[in-house]
Structures are given as structure tokens and as C-alpha cells.
Design a protein around this nucleic acid. Structure first.
Lengths: 217, 217, 217, 217
DNA sequence: GATGAATGAGGGTTCATTCAT
DNA sequence: TATGAATGAACCCTCATTCAT
């Protein structure tokens, strides 16, 4: 028993260290592009020896993947908790609202880890899942190439819009006076983009019928 | 006179070297992410001493910017030459068609230099110009934040769609069966996305009236 | 009593762990040069925590020395057990035969721990002992420099020959067609080398008389 | 012309640097085992930036190979220059004498680079050549396995003897009183070892006839 | 005795940049 | 203008060892 407790205590301490490291990694990768992040910087931010990064994550790349994963898990949790089961359109609106809330709460992370690395390999699977959720809700055929690429394009547009939105209140080269649109307005904008994407899917594949999906919005 | 000639000859030779270097830079940055491109690699590809990269472009970053510039200039030239002066919709279609033709002709460059670095600083100005062209044609208010961000989102979507389209015929992890959509279908998809973007601008800024613009498509 | 038993049990368990570690160390040092062996690797091979290597052997070097010792003890045991007390020549032959049998049975260990590290400090004492056995049997003066160095040279030759013999049946860069000489032939070859070494001792020290020793072969 | 001179001057300077580096590498590898030699140490000894080691030798391993090569080339030159064309036995004696003179003149290098790394891959080819010289002089069949391994064993013995000889006047754990045998005595000892090796070849391969070779000694 | 988390020294390599020629 | 030798900062990683539990 005492042994178990001890072991558990040690493991808990180790886990805590790992979490500190993970948080530091998220912070670092949120502030700098991958190649400007250093293992030493992460360790320093976590207040531990740099050797621990390799110890816990098998090197820098491992730490990066873990950071991406952590962020996405967080976001996924924020987006999908307590979903209303109402109409599809409302569900989408809620999901978009939560997405916007999340990125607004974590602008650095959003801008550098989520929105900027859209084509990063570590993100591919995560994005795919997000897209599949929408595909499902709209009752669109899975595996249809036109739908897949169109929804990916929608994701690009939405992420770009969100990024621009976040940058609205930030210091950018030209002092942007981008109005800080409301979350509501952004949500509706997302829906409009989604509708456009659906119509583009139709254009790509005339055998499709996106009208039912459009009606759900 | 002989001095002049010599100088001129030297200058011409220098210019030629610079062009070789530029071409090599475009090729290198088209094949690898920035940090995997080396000054030595560019110089080797150009068949000159690596010191010349700093000489002609003030370092790696300078070479990158020059490469981006060159590519964009090329693309801009391809897109805007011999424009039909017909209806706006046709002009847009033509421009999109040319854009697609260009990226299809330079897939590596497109995938790595144009489509992937969408948020790269060196590209900001270039993109802005492209967007302003569309804004102008559609007779949309310049400087309106909603329009600006919505069209940027459209650009993200279009570029993402184009990238996916290019990847269609490429080796990707999952053996994609992404149908190689026709340029025509892609063009119409672009228009659908653009329409969606316009409607999203409307959502962001209710004081706008995008109906005239939509009518032009 | 129960305390004693417990302690004894603990000690036994500890000894077992140490033996596992020792065996793992021999295996590791048999397969890789010293600097490519890692403490972690040894521990992993033994299935215990890597901290135990320092615990039981005071560090990597200690583990190496212990491994060398263990191997030499094994070899010595194999060579000297049940010695016929016959003629010196036969005793030598038997010893050589056993040496060859041992290295043939443990080729990796032989090639890396015994034959390759001939001048390793940890081996010095061991070799010296082996040599002194032969010196004694041949009734040669102990402490004579010429004899000492000549027999060391013989040891080098014999070990080299054995190594080459072992490599005969192994994958080496040039597809060796080294005939797999018989143990008998190898034994006689050893004797010939030994005779040569004795004569070289004579050359080094004319005051010696190696003829009696030669006669014993 | 001036260009040529300049280029030549620069190349000469570079070559000089490379030579300094090479000399430093030989010195370092002569004093320490490979893994205790550091690139920084070599560069420091040469008085240049450590990056130059990679620049001129493509890394540490390259520097090592170059050092080995340089040493062997030196030795080969020392051994084979101005050879008397007399009897084979005398030629061998001369070669052995020169070998001994060389190692005596470079004891550190000899002990660590030449004599100790007998089985180092970088040395394999070099040794083979040395052996082939003797094989040729003695008119022994090339490619015969018994001859090959026996002469390799001779090389081991000779190198070991030479090493011991060098250690004679050095600080070793037990204050050796190994008499500093004369070069002449050593030479004769080499011949005795060689004769023994030839007889061992005979033992390995009875179809051989080494008597002619023995007669040449 | 055993564990394995934590430390941190240390190494080799890469590479952009400088500069003498 | 062109060359490429030289510089040296910076990085990631490996690993033996320590030590609290």
C-alpha cells in the first residue's frame, strides 16, 4: 500500500512535470514558428532541465505533436460539450460560436498553432474530424470528393476569417481598423461561407444535390 | 569607351548571375519549406559561389522575398494579360481560369510558394492587390472592413481548393481518389465561393448591399 | 529469524539482479564497442531500471570490467579444467584446443571482448596470467623481458589468427573464402607460432637458451 | 595571370590550413582514443575555427580517416624508399628496420594510431597492402587462405612486439624494466616470428610448401 | 534493493554571413 | 564581380549519474 502510494506520488509528480512541459510547449509554439522554438526555451519556460523534453516527448518534434494534440483536444472539448440537440442550423451556429470563443480566448495559440498551420501534417487528422462532423450533420455523402474539397475550402475560409478577426485588435503593419465584428455576425458569416462552399461542391459535382443541406442552414 | 563597354559587359554578366540565382531560389523554395532551403543549395543549383546569394540579395531572407516577388509577378502577368473587357462575371471567370492554369503549370511552386504561405508576410501585399482587383470589378467599397476580410476569406478558400485540386493527382498518404475536376468546374466553384464570401460580408456588415455585386457573377 | 530470512531473501534477489545485469553487460559489450554500449541498453536487456547499473557496478566502466572479468573467468575455467598431466606439448595442445572451442562457442564475445581489446587495460592482468601458464609449462625463466614480450607477441598472433578463423564463416565485406580450418590444424598452427615466438625471444636475448622449450613442443 | 596567382595563393593558404588541421588530427588521435578526441580539440590544436573540420574533412570521422591515411602514407614512404635490391632476406630486414625506426620516431602515433587499431576498418586496406608486399617478396601464392591468415597473424605479432618495445621506455603501471632491445635484435625477432607464421601456414594447409620461402629468410 | 525522473555537461553538425583576394 | 575559406553561434540530442521515494 505504501509502495503503491509512493509510486503513485512519484508518477503524479512526473506527470505534473510533463504537464508543465506541455504547457510550455504550447506557449512556445504559440509564439514562434516551429524552427524558432528551441528545446532549451521550452524547458526554461517550464523551469526544468532541457533533457526532460526528450525524456518525456522524445525530442522537439514529439513535443510539437503533443502540443498540437493538446490544443486540439481542448478545442474539441470546448466545441462539443453540452450540445443542444435542436435544429442542425442551430447546432452549427453553436459550434461556430464556441470555436470563435475559443480562438478569441487563446489568440496567440489560435493564430500560430491552429489557424496558421492549416496544412501541417500534425493537423490533418484533426481538421478532417472537424469537417466530418459538419458533413454528418448536413447529411452529406461521406467520401464524395467534391464535398470533401469544398468543405476543406470552407474550413480554410473560416479559419482565415477567424484569423483576420483576431488580428483586428492587434498590432499589424498597417494599423488595421478592421471592425471587431461581433461573434454573432461572425457566426452568420461562417454560415454564408458554408453555403457558398456547398454550392461550390455542387458546381464540382453536378450529380450532387446540396439543396437539402442548404435548407438546413 | 572600352571602359564603358567593359563595365556594361560586367553588369550584364552580373545580371545574368543574379537571374540564375533567382531561378534557383524559386526552384528551391518551391521544393522545400523555408528552413530546409540552404543558401548553399541555392548557389549550387545556380552553379555559382554561395557567397553570391548574400551579394545579390542580402542574405537568405532577401532571396526568398525576391523569389516570391518573381513568382507573383509571373502570375500577375499570366492573369491580367489580354483581358476581355466583357461582362464582369466573364472577366472573373477568365482570371480564375488563368490562375488555375498557372498553378497547374507550376504545381510545386504553387503548392509551396503560393498556396501554402498564404499568411506569409512577403505575400501580404501581393494578395491584397489581387483582392483589390476583384473588389474593383465588383464595384465594392474599398476600405470596408467586412468586404476586405470576406474577400480574404474567399482567397483562402480558393487557394485551399486549388491546392487540393493540385494534390488530386499527386502522391498523398491516403490514396486520394479526388476526381481531377475540370478547370471549368473549378472556375464555377470559385464563383460559388465568391458569392458565399459576399454574403458573409453582408452578414458582417448589414449596412452593405452586396446584391449588385452578386448580380454581376 | 524472520528478519534474517528476509534479509537473506533480499540479498538473494539482489544477487540475482546483479547476475542478470552482468549477463546483459557481457552480451552488450560483446555486440558493440564500448562507446556504443549504453547503460540504458544494458539495463533494458536485463529488464531492470538503469539506475541499478551504477548501483551494482559503480557506473559503466565498472560494468565493463565486471563483464571482462566474468568472461575471462569462464574462459579460464574452460581451459584449465581436467587437464591431462601428460607431456607439455599435449597439455599445450589441449589448452589451445579448448581456447579455440571456447571462442568458437562464443564468437561475438570472443571477437569483441577477448580478441579485439587485446591491449585493453582490463585485460592486461588476465593475459599476463595466461602467458605465465605457458611460461611455466615450458620452464622458461619468469621475468625475462625477452620471454615476456615474445610470448605477448605470440598471444597477439594467436588471438589474431583465432579472430580471423572466426570471421571465416561470417559476413565480411569481401566474401572471404577463408577455409574453415579444423581445430586440429589451428592447434598445430598455434604451436608453430609459439615456436617462432620462442626463437624470437632467443633473437632478442642471446643469453637465453630456448632449445629445451622448443623440444617440448 | 594575376587571377591565377591569386587563386593559387588562396588555394595554397587553404591547403596550408588543411594541413594544419590534418597535423592536429594526427596528434589528437595519437594521444586519445577516437571517442575522446573532440572536433573542437582538433580545431583548437590547429588554431582555427571548429567549423573547418567539417569544411575540410566532412566531419570527425573524415578527419580520422584522413589522419590514418596520412600516417600510413608517411610510413609507407619511409619503408619503401631507396630499397636495396639484394636478397629477399635483406630487403625484409631493411623494411622491418625502417618500420621500427618509424614507430620509434613517432611512438604516440604508433601506439595509438598504427599498432592499436589493427582491426580498425580504416586500416584494413593499408595492412593488406603491407602484407601483400611480404607475400610477394617471398613468392608465396596470393589468395591462399592459410597464407593470408598466417601473415595477418605475423603482422599482429610484429605490431604487438613493436608496441611492447615502445612501451619499454615508458611509464606503465608496473615500472617495466623491459630491456630496450636493439633495432637489430628486434629485426631478427621479426624474422623469427615470420618464420613461425610461415610454418603455421603450412600447418593450416598441408598442400603448401613454405620451404622455399623459409629458405629466403 | 529498486525505480526512473531529473540533471546538465558535452558533443557533432549545420549554416548564414563575412571578407580577403 | 566572384570566389570559397573561415568564422562561430546555435541547436538538438545522448547519456552517465544522482537521488528522492
Amino acid at each position: 500500500m505504501s509502495t503503491d502510494n509512493r509510486l503513485t506520488a512519484r508518477q503524479a509528480a512526473a506527470e505534473q512535470t510533463k504537464q508543465k512541459l506541455l504547457a510550455a510547449a504550447v506557449a512556445e509554439f504559440s509564439q514562434r514558428p516551429y524552427d524558432e522554438v528551441t528545446v532549451g526555451g521550452i524547458a526554461r519556460a517550464a523551469g526544468v532541465a532541457h533533457g526532460l523534453v526528450s525524456h518525456h516527448f522524445q525530442g522537439k518534434q514529439g513535443a510539437y505533436v503533443a502540443a498540437v494534440d493538446a490544443v486540439y483536444r481542448q478545442m474539441e472539448a470546448a466545441e462539443s460539450s453540452e450540445l443542444v440537440v435542436d435544429a442542425v442550423g442551430d447546432r452549427l451556429r453553436q459550434r461556430f460560436r464556441r470555436f470563435l470563443a475559443f480562438v478569441a480566448a487563446n489568440p496567440d495559440t489560435a493564430l500560430n498553432l491552429i489557424l496558421a498551420s492549416g496544412r501541417d501534417e500534425a493537423f490533418a487528422a484533426r481538421r478532417e474530424y472537424s469537417i466530418s462532423v459538419v458533413t454528418g450533420w448536413l447529411d452529406l455523402p461521406t467520401g464524395n470528393a467534391a464535398v470533401t474539397v469544398a468543405l476543406a475550402a470552407f474550413a480554410d475560409a473560416a479559419e482565415g476569417l477567424a484569423a483576420e478577426w483576431l488580428r483586428g485588435g492587434r498590432a499589424t503593419s498597417p494599423p488595421t481598423d478592421t471592425a471587431p465584428f461581433s461573434v454573432e455576425a461572425m457566426t452568420e458569416a461562417f454560415l454564408a461561407l458554408l453555403a457558398g462552399a456547398l454550392r461550390s461542391a455542387q458546381a464540382l459535382d453536378p450529380s450532387l444535390d446540396v439543396r437539402p443541406a442548404l435548407a438546413l442552414l
